[in-house]
Simulated scan of single mutants.
Amino acid sequence: MVQKSAMKQAKAMTVRLSEEQAQALEMVASVENLPVSDIIRAAITTHIETRRRDPGFQAGLKDRISQARKLLDR
C-alpha cells in the first residue's frame, strides 16, 4: 500500500468507471476492509511496476524521450 507520508503531497484526480467496475471495486474494498482509494492506489502502483519491468514498454519510453529531445534541440 501507499505510505501515509506520501499522501501529504497527493494530487487529486478524477477517474470515471463503468457501473460494473465501480460495483466490483467497492466490493473488493468492502471485503478487504480498505478504502476504495487504497485499492486504486495499490492497483496503479502494481501497473506502474509491471511497466517498469516490461522491455517493450521501456523501448517505447526511450523512443518518446528521444523524440522529446529532438523537439527541444530544434
Rank of each mutant, 00 (worst) to 15 (best):
T46N: 02
Q3R: 12
V36I: 15
R41M: 09
F57R: 10
S37L: 02
R64Q: 14
R41D: 13
Q21C: 01
G60M: 10
K11L: 13
A42V: 12
S18W: 01
K70I: 12
R41E: 13
L71R: 06
L61I: 08
M27F: 08
A68Y: 13
S5G: 01
L34K: 15
K70P: 00
G56Q: 01
K4E: 13
A59Q: 09
D73N: 06
Q23F: 05
I44C: 07
E32D: 11
P55W: 00
P55H: 02
A22F: 06
Q3K: 13
L61C: 09
R51I: 08
L61F: 11
K70E: 14
L61S: 12
D73E: 05
E49M: 04
E20H: 11
E20T: 10
K8A: 07
T45R: 09
I44S: 04
L17V: 01
A43R: 10
V2K: 02
R69W: 09
K62W: 04
T46A: 03
M7I: 07
L34W: 10
I48Q: 12
I65D: 14
F57T: 07
S18T: 11
T50E: 12
T14Y: 09
D63M: 06
A22Y: 06
G60T: 09
R53V: 07
A43V: 10
A24H: 06
R51H: 10
E32L: 10
R16C: 05
S37M: 03
T14C: 05
M27I: 06
A12S: 14
L17K: 00
P55R: 04
A24C: 02
P35R: 14
R52Y: 03
A68E: 15
R53W: 06
F57Y: 15
S30C: 03
D54W: 02
A22V: 00
L25S: 04
Q9F: 05
K8V: 04
